[in-house]
Design a protein around this nucleic acid. Structure first.
Lengths: 257, 257
DNA sequence: CCATATATGTCGTCG
DNA sequence: CGACGACGTATATGG
């Protein structure tokens, strides 16, 4: 069987009875497959916040790591979800069994976790498709253009910041948190560098400001610490904040282009 | 036909030839269905950053609004994606057509957008399932426990902040941005309130600080502006920052429960 | 487990 | 379209 050769398997039911759908979902969860269900459902969530969603046609995905996703036909983000680490449960409510129900039969999927206590409940009136996918995925995403790339770029060529800049540490701890790059300029003054992979706003300035303040205290009274924000660009408001607090900006992208 | 009655329809192919899969996907996109594809594929992305992902079994979702999602069997987040507004394209590369390929036939899905220019490309060697779902979803998510709920709570009962507090405006503009709640205390002093629906860290303090600074300048030299952070709780570091800058904290949750 | 910061964050809103 | 801030943000990392 070709499926077995590849370690791939898909089990699909179209327009199943709720009982059959229930069994297929339970089996998929049991087998640690990626399970999808499409059909008419209501959704409610209770946890860090709480939400309800009235009946509509949606796509539900249950992952073997405990994640759950409810997608409508719009948006990149799921309308409801549950993070990895949840326990998925599925069962059928027969006529009258469902305390909240109107007597109609429903298929219920629940995903629950603790810390924080959260529960997602999807009630299907009608299931159009159930699928269970088994496969293999050994590979990891290789991503470039990150803040880490920007850091490497500067460490390999510190002169990109300014001539004479010498990086002394990354992730150096201060009372306000870890500084991206800690170093000295040509004149021996302490330099704090905050990196951002994209255009920065006021938040990044606040962050740099906290680190500089903390280091000026740590290093003693008259310490003169320079703070440099490194990012592709800066908004007007952030630029004004930098000026107000005597901080500097250097335009640099994560990758050379 | 029941499908037509409900306006629901699903078209599913299992283990289709790539050509057949290609036609089904193109048809689903054309019909503005929610299309899913499961199979062995590689993925590459180029845009704000860039990434490559070697061959593995993954679940791809194409939404009629232009969103694309590539899910592995782990994590709540897609391993690759494209936001709404993209144009989806699908085609088959016959032997030798693919400049990058090894001569094997592949099915390629591309989702492209501009501003910023971004392209997601999924190349399937093997498709285990293609589905196209049509349905209706009129309803909107009703969510509670948000920052907006916290604001309402305070506006309806300002004494929750302190006796004599009088809210004068929400989203009041300052040089540093809009303040959540702007008001006066019993003594007539200006009060700036920053709301957070959950436990706050240093960032929220920085935000409040910027608003207070801006108002003290706006309102004149000797203006004495109080800044109050309202949230369920604060971290130690944030608490210290509040103290350092003469800001206050009041513990309050978005909902009374 | 909590605290902190990053992210191709996404998403809404407003200028 | 850019800026700004909220989000049930998720996710990684360190204490």
């Amino acid at each position: 069987m070709t499926d077995s050769e590849y370690g791939q398997r898909t089990e699909t039911l179209e327009r199943p009875a709720l009982e059959a759908a229930c069994d297929a979902i339970a089996d998929g969860i049991e087998r640690e497959a990626l399970v999808t269900v499409f059909g008419r459902c209501t959704v409610d969530y209770e946890g860090r916040a709480s939400s309800v969603l009235e009946a509509g046609d949606r796509h539900v995905m249950l992952k073997p790591d405990g994640a759950a996703l409810v997608h409508t036909d719009e948006g990149q983000q799921p309308v409801n979800w549950q993070p990895p680490g949840c326990v998925h449960d599925v069962f059928c409510n027969h006529d009258g069994d469902d305390a909240d129900g109107d007597g109609a039969e429903t298929l219920v999927i629940e995903s629950v976790r603790s810390t924080p206590d959260e529960r997602l409940r999807v009630r299907f009136q009608d299931v159009l498709q159930v699928s269970a996918f088994s496969g293999t995925d050994e590979t990891e995403l290789a991503l470039s253009g990150t803040e880490e790339d920007l850091r490497q770029r500067i460490l390999e060529e510190p002169t990109l910041l300014e001539t004479g800049f010498r990086p002394l540490a990354t992730e150096r701890e201060t009372a306000a948190g870890a500084v991206d790059i800690y170093g000295e300029d040509a004149a021996g003054r302490t330099v704090v560098v905050e990196l951002k992979r994209r255009r920065v706003g006021p938040d990044a300035v606040g962050q740099l400001r906290r680190y500089v303040d903390a280091l000026e205290r740590d290093l003693h009274a008259d310490a003169d610490v320079r703070g440099i924000l490194v990012a592709p660009s800066v908004t007007d408001r952030a630029d004004r904040l930098l000026a107000d607090h005597g901080l500097e900006f250097i335009a640099l992208e994560p990758t050379s282009e």
